[in-house]
């Protein structure tokens, strides 16, 4: 089920009580691309992902492959192969790592399977545990994991969920340098022929792992292209210049709460 599909957004607009958080965004992510989405705080990055995954109401269009996503329920969008992580890790803290993954893997299970106990660890779950390096810790409660491990578990959940479009909201925020490296490699392995959109403030991370970059500012697309193209774009420099003298480091706020 890994035939890649692309994400195609047209005229996306999200309004909160009169405040326009996303203002007519067009965005194309090619199948198999790793696209980074950057922009200052409040640019509307998370809101864009919220709209694509059905969490907030939006107008316009967002197609994944052949399928229109807008207007569908959150769980239906997820079943189309769209998976996401959250800015602050959202796990089932009171369940074990294994249970978290098993639930993520199971949306397509029959009622009969649901009503029975889990026998052996399913293959895809075992594989995901291996991939995210948590095999040893599979029986601990997710709530007791370290911050980095939580983010990896979230990525593992996307893996077993068999999502073909991954939307990651600041996956390395708050991580140590080593954890970032590990996360980056994990992303590389997970990406495969999936289509990936990463929201990130960390520029080193971006340079190492991005295929292409879109810059969002005040709800609009400011610039788009390869890392080099975007960094050379005077509009981008202008937006960031207020507080970044080092042009190589356009976004310096780094991680946020």
């Amino acid at each position: 089920m890994s035939d890649a599909a692309g994400l195609c957004i047209r005229g996306l607009r999200v309004v909160f009580d009169g405040f326009v958080a996303v203002d007519g965004v067009d965005l194309d992510v090619a199948p198999g691309d790793i696209r980074f989405l950057i922009g200052p705080n409040g640019a509307g990055k998370t809101t864009l992902v919220d709209a694509v995954t059905g969490l907030v109401k939006a107008s316009g269009s967002a197609r994944f492959g052949e399928q229109e996503l807008l207007g569908r329920d959150v769980h239906r969008i997820a079943r189309l192969g769209v998976g996401r992580t959250f800015q602050t890790a959202a796990l089932f803290e009171e369940l074990t790592v294994l249970q978290n993954l098993d639930i993520a893997a199971g949306a397509g299970r029959s009622p009969w399977t649901m009503l029975r106990r889990r026998g052996a660890v399913p293959d895809d779950v075992a594989y995901a545990l291996e991939t995210i390096g948590l095999t040893e810790r599979r029986d601990v409660l997710a709530g007791t994991l370290a911050h980095g491990q939580k983010q990896w578990l979230e990525i593992g959940m996307l893996l077993v969920q068999n999502a073909r479009l991954l939307l990651l909201d600041e996956p390395v925020a708050g991580m140590s340098h080593e954890e970032r490296e590990a996360t980056g490699e994990l992303l590389g392995r997970v990406a495969g022929d999936r289509t990936v959109v990463v929201i990130e403030h960390d520029m080193d991370f971006l340079r190492r792992f991005a295929d292409t970059v879109t810059v969002l500012h005040a709800g609009k697309v400011l610039s788009e292209g390869t890392v080099a193209q975007v960094q050379a774009d005077p509009k981008v420099q202008e937006v960031y210049l207020g507080h970044a003298t080092d042009q190589d480091e356009p976004v310096s706020q780094g991680a946020e709460a």
């Binding site: 959150v74 959202a90 949306a107």
Partner: peptide, 8 residues
Amino acid sequence: NRVRFLGY
């Protein structure tokens, strides 16, 4: 909500 994003 998290459950919802997993397709349930």
